[in-house]
């Protein structure tokens, strides 16, 4: 069997497993964990678009995620209907992303990290202190979930299926994008931005559109998040949240399609399991972060593949690190 057929078979198996998941995972707790994995994977797709394909590490994406969540919750609390709130939240989220991008894309590399981090912290500060809008530390409750076509999303299974459908659409969009000319151009700006300019590409504009797509995915995830928890508080916008999703991407493998999904599963599962026993999730998060960056900088998926190949082919090439800034010398 060729590799392509094998891959296709694997995908089909995964698809079937996900479609039938509520049938074999009968405990509601696990169905909920699966929903979380899927919407965090959408968030990770968004961050991966910048981190993996554009070489831009954002430590402020939880701010954008939070804007969409807060906008949904706030508008619902103000008495708007579900469809209008969702659409308005997406528009507000995209508008904020445009400002976010315009400010942070003045630099790349380390400068980009610093500015996104500062922007993320400012949004967190707003959520925390702008009490008349955000209700401060008490957060905002969302009392109902939408009922698309009369289909109630109150149950864990129903919510899972909607999340799954949205996840599939996002995954397909990302898969199309990374194979497209614009996707290739984006990877080009990651590796050789000066050369891309000399070839006739508008590097800034390519990065800007990547930011917008990333922001769209982030906001979609944020809306799913707020409906899942039916609650939003400033904690969602904290630096730890941005770092968690970056960890999902770099642990799963940046610039791969599957990586963000694997990373999301890893982080969500470890977090749910660990918090059942100890309250020290952040310590573990930090430790995993340090360990992965130092030991397996290319991520778990490519890293495992590398070790696997190493096992029976003794490849001698040095591990490629996606975390290096600047274009690699050819």
């Amino acid at each position: 069997m060729s590799r392509g057929v094998l891959g296709l078979a694997g995908l089909a198996a995964a698809f079937l497993a996900l479609v039938t998941l509520p049938l074999w995972l009968t405990q509601i707790y696990y169905v909920n964990v699966a929903s979380q994995i899927l919407f965090y994977a959408i968030f990770a797709f968004g961050v991966n678009l910048l981190l993996g394909y554009a070489g831009l590490v954002s430590l402020g994406h939880a701010g954008l995620f939070g804007i969409a969540s807060y906008a949904t919750a706030y508008l619902l609390a103000a008495g708007w209907g579900h469809p209008l709130s969702i659409i308005a939240a997406l528009i507000i989220g995209l508008f904020s992303t445009a400002i976010f991008a315009a400010l942070s894309l003045r630099t790349s590399g380390i400068g980009f990290i610093m500015i996104t981090l500062a922007l993320g912290e400012i949004l967190w500060g707003l959520a925390y202190r702008w009490i008349s809008v955000t209700n401060g530390d008490n957060g905002i409750n969302v009392h109902t979930r939408p009922t698309p076509f009369g289909f109630s999303l109150t149950s864990a299974e129903a919510f899972y299926y909607v999340t799954f459908v949205v996840f599939l659409i996002c995954a397909i969009l990302v898969a199309i994008f990374v194979r497209s000319p614009l996707g290739a151009a984006l990877r080009g700006t990651r590796d050789q931005p000066r050369r891309m300019t000399a070839l006739g590409y508008h590097v800034w504009m390519i990065r800007f559109w990547a930011c917008m797509f990333s922001g769209l995915l982030t906001c979609v995830a944020g809306i799913l998040f707020v409906y899942y928890n039916q609650f939003i508080s400033p904690q969602t916008l904290a630096l730890t949240s941005s770092a968690e999703v970056v960890l999902m991407v770099i642990s799963g493998g940046p610039a791969t399609l599957l990586g963000p999904v694997v990373g999301s599963a890893l982080v969500v599962i470890v977090k749910s399991v660990v918090s059942g026993y100890i309250a020290r999730w952040n310590f573990l998060l930090g430790a995993i972060f340090v360990a992965i960056v130092i030991l397996m900088p290319e991520g778990l998926v490519p890293g495992t593949v590398r070790l696997w190949k190493l096992g029976w082919r003794r490849a001698t090439t040095r591990r490629p690190s996606v975390l290096k800034t600047g274009g690699p010398p050819a």
Partner: peptide
Amino acid sequence: VMLALLGLSKSRWNPFISLG
């Protein structure tokens, strides 16, 4: 080399078609 060609083509902005 395709990146060089794409740089002058309008389709460099297209996010939907497959480059290959």
